[in-house]
């Protein structure tokens, strides 16, 4: 369960980091291009720490469990050859349905407003999440959370400020920011519905009880949207599935790009 939980956190970090990295070289101005790339690298750094930890846990599994943990033939081949899997294998060789990230983080960039809205929803969550995971009974996860909290604090500052800047900006920026906030709203509920792994880990004091983060998240989002003269979206039906491996088609495109090289040329280095 802890392996599933570690991967659940790692996948969120990798996918949001990858999405933000897509802005690299395409930012609206040089300074924001660098800002987003820095943030993407923060997420990627967190993903690496978590995948390293996940790989370590995987390598300690009984042989039979290693065979069935993931569907990926590429990983099974490694196991059959008696090789240890690495952080890279976790990111590059698992199949889409073995990814446990939320649907929110895989949503496309579309434009600056959507990118900011997605970051804002995730950063607010991640800030409270890291604040809580810092107290994990698992020292590795606690250490990763403590390091990440500093980064997450800045991410939240950055995305909140952009929500306010665009929301309380021109008529056009207000309208487009509101649209992005509304359109991505239905992907926010999933963050606070615990998967089996999240429940089990929260019960053991290792993981975070995500249902308890919801009111903190709601309050912060409400305050920032009010600052931004934006309307809080109506509560409504929420998308779910990412935590169980049922993803939107977006993840397939991400993994196609992300995993192509290692799938086509196994073990390639440059």
């Amino acid at each position: 369960m802890k392996l599933a939980y570690t991967l659940r956190l790692a996948d969120d970090a990798l996918i949001i980091g990858h999405r933000l990295s897509e802005w690299c070289g395409h930012g609206p101005i040089l300074e924001q291009d660098i800002a987003l790339t820095n943030t993407a690298l923060d997420h990627l750094g967190r993903a690496r720490s978590l995948y390293q930890y996940a790989a370590q846990q995987f390598n300690e599994l009984p042989e039979a469990e290693k065979q069935t943990a993931f569907t990926s033939v590429a990983i099974q081949n490694l196991v059959n050859a008696g090789a240890a899997v690495s952080e890279d294998d976790m990111a590059f060789l698992r199949d889409g349905w073995d990814f446990r990230n939320t649907l929110l983080v895989e949503q496309p960039n579309i434009d600056w407003a959507y990118t900011v809205a997605r970051a804002f929803y995730f950063d607010t969550y991640n800030y409270f999440f890291c604040s809580a995971l810092k107290n994990s009974a698992d020292t590795t996860l606690a250490a990763i959370a403590e390091k990440s909290l500093k980064e997450a604090t800045y991410h939240l500052r950055w995305s909140s400020e952009w929500v306010v800047r665009l929301g309380d900006g021109t008529d056009e920026s207000h309208e487009r920011m509101q649209k992005a906030i509304n359109e991505l709203w239905s992907y926010t509920g999933e963050m606070f519905v615990a998967s089996d792994a999240e429940k089990a880990m929260a019960d053991q004091g290792i993981g975070v009880d995500v249902s308890k983060l919801k009111s903190l998240w709601m309050q912060r989002v409400q305050e920032t949207l009010a600052d931004a003269t934006l309307a809080m979206p109506q509560a409504g039906w929420m998308q779910q599935g990412g935590k169980d491996g049922r993803h939107s088609e977006n993840l397939g495109y991400i993994l196609t790009e992300l995993q192509f090289m290692q799938r086509a040329y196994p073990g390639m280095e440059w």
Binding site: I29, L30, E31, Q32, I34, A35, N38, Y154, R157, W158, E161, R165
Partner: peptide
Amino acid sequence: SLHAADEKMAIENARDVYTR
């Protein structure tokens, strides 16, 4: 030097561009 809309953004941009 850098471009920014106001002093808040200027400090953040400076943080991202010049203190990384």
